[in-house]
Amino acid sequence: MRPASAGRATHDRLWRAWVIAAPFAWLIVLFLIPFVLVFKISLADPILGQPPFTPLFGAVEGAQGSWHVTFDNYRFLFADNLYLYSYLKSLKVAFISTVLCLAVGYPMAYGIARAARPWRHILLLLVILPFWTSFLLRVYAWMGMLGKQGLVNTLLLQAGLVDEPVSMLYTDFAVYIGIVYTYLPFMILPLYANLERRHRDLHEVAADLGARPLAVFLDVTLPLSIPGIIAGCMLVFIPAIGEFVIPALLGGPETLMIGRTLYDEFFFNRDWPLSSAVATVLVFILVLPIMVFQHYQVKETRMVS
């Protein structure tokens, strides 16, 4: 029996190693290596040439082969207010959008989870239906609706609610609409997955112990849905920080988010090292919420098991 079971154990170990190795390989190839490359560029000086930055190690202008590392790009990020402003603006827009998504998404997810079974699938389908058309197309549609001669203004004027067209397009307001609209499914889906697991007996016990329906919601439903809230918020917040298309198309000059700054730096100024530094800092800004997310993910898995 021994050799057989030992063989089996080896087999198990190999299998487990593979299961763990696969996502690691994925992360290394698609995240870590590109990130290291970007980080490397962020430590170089910009030059006119191909590639447009100095090599990290090598002979520069006849000097002997040596390391050439500079933190000037990072220093510059803090020297010019533009970057700090962009980061803060991105955080603010992402934060407010996340809160709005939660406010809109929670009741929707709750409603879907409480709907009769056949309805649930139809409603979920409706939530993800917009994904079937191009994202850009949908943002352009919003431009059409929010413009001076757009649908919204036309309706407002006809209803006599306003005397002249309201400027909505090219403002922060339009950006919030665009982000909330685009990212809402990412809020609803994890929330639904959480709320759909109905803790019927917990709700009934709470009611039995004297909790009215609102108290049951606040004492039982809401706390138990915190992992879903966190997952949804992360899925909205993280991509919203780096969002480029929506502020570029719907936002105005004051909507200077980090994605736009990065784009300008890269394509207009062709300053690869500086834009790499911008990107590297962004990654570190995002690591914190991702770690929070991870923490709760682990906690939820524990609670379910």
């Binding site: 803790h199 007996d201 917990l202 009934e204 016990v205 709470a206 039995d208 138990l224």
Partner: peptide, 11 residues
């Protein structure tokens, strides 16, 4: 009522 599943609040 005390449920068969106990239904202790996990949080």
């Amino acid at each position: 009522i005390m449920f068969q599943s106990y239904a202790v609040f996990p949080h």
